[in-house]
């Protein structure tokens, strides 16, 4: 690679206190414009890795780096501006007591970027929500719309990387298609790259050019999605592919 990766985990290991390692020697790189999928079953360490990549937890060994510089306490604020997240459950990830305008503006306030209402309006517009959404509360919206609000909040500070933890698995199939389309268009229009955690290989195939397979805290296989899904080399990947119900 000529340029450093946008976001990378280098030989990362992590153990919860008193526990066996949740992650062992995980190396993963996200390059601008190449969406990466992180695939694995419950307990494989996907969420732990995501927490490390979000800077919520420090790895026991190895480093997380953004554009070549290791993540430290000191540069966490810049990092947050560049790396934002969307989570699985649009019902629990939005504060029910706040209006949507305030929820979407949260990263701006938290990062000291001012509370320019035009940025909030632009973010809502980008995810296809009406401008008057700002004065309403999360409970007034459907699951798919709530996920749009969560995405608007994530992109309001113009991040470079979006960490998306199962962003569509709680949604109905028809809504899922629309949110996947939205994510794809955001990547194209806003110079955004996604690290997608998902167990849905159809969504992975649709959105990501690179795929990494995590099993028991180790990356057992990674490479172009075409190769990983088309010619899986690890038995676990093969089993995963055979298990997907097809039409």
């Amino acid at each position: 690679m000529t340029s450093p990766a946008l976001l990378s985990a280098d030989h990362v290991g992590y153990s919860y206190r008193g526990g066996s390692p949740a992650l062992t020697d995980v190396s993963l790189a996200v390059h601008a414009g190449d969406n990466v999928a992180l695939v694995g079953e419950s307990g494989a360490g996907k969420t732990t890795l995501l927490r490390l990549l979000l800077g919520l937890t420090t790895p026991t060994t190895g480093t997380i780096a953004y554009a070549g510089s290791p993540l430290t306490r000191r540069n966490l604020r810049d990092y947050r501006r560049a790396v934002q997240a969307v989570f699985q459950d649009p019902y629990s990830s939005l504060d029910p007591r706040h209006r949507v305008g305030r929820i979407v503006a949260e990263p701006l306030r938290g990062l000291g970027l001012g509370t320019d209402p035009t940025r909030v309006a632009a973010a809502l517009d980008a995810v296809g929500l009406p401008a008057d959404a700002t004065t309403r509360y999360p409970h007034e919206f459907s699951g798919g719309q709530r996920q749009r609000i969560a995405i608007a909040r994530a992109i309001v500070c113009d991040p470079k990387v979006l960490l998306a933890d199962e962003p569509v698995s709680a949604l109905d199939l028809t809504t899922r298609v629309r949110i996947v389309d939205l994510l794809a268009s955001l990547c194209a229009d806003r110079d955004l790259t996604i690290l997608l955690v998902s167990h849905d290989l159809g969504v992975v195939a649709e959105l990501c050019t690179h795929t990494a397979v995590l099993e028991h805290g180790r990356i057992v296989e990674q490479g172009p999605t075409r190769t990983v899904l088309g010619a899986p080399s690890h038995p676990y990947t093969r089993r995963l592919l055979q298990s997907v119900p097809r039409l």
Binding site: L173, T174, R176, V177, D200, L201, G202, V203, A205, E206, T225, R226, L229, G230, A231, L241, V244, R246, L247
Partner: peptide, 19 residues
């Protein structure tokens, strides 16, 4: 039809990657 199309969309995306 919408349901079936939605399901086929992801199924086809996966299918394109499988040999």
């Amino acid at each position: 039809r919408t349901l079936v199309d939605s399901a086929r969309r992801f199924d086809a995306a996966l299918g394109r990657h499988l040999s």
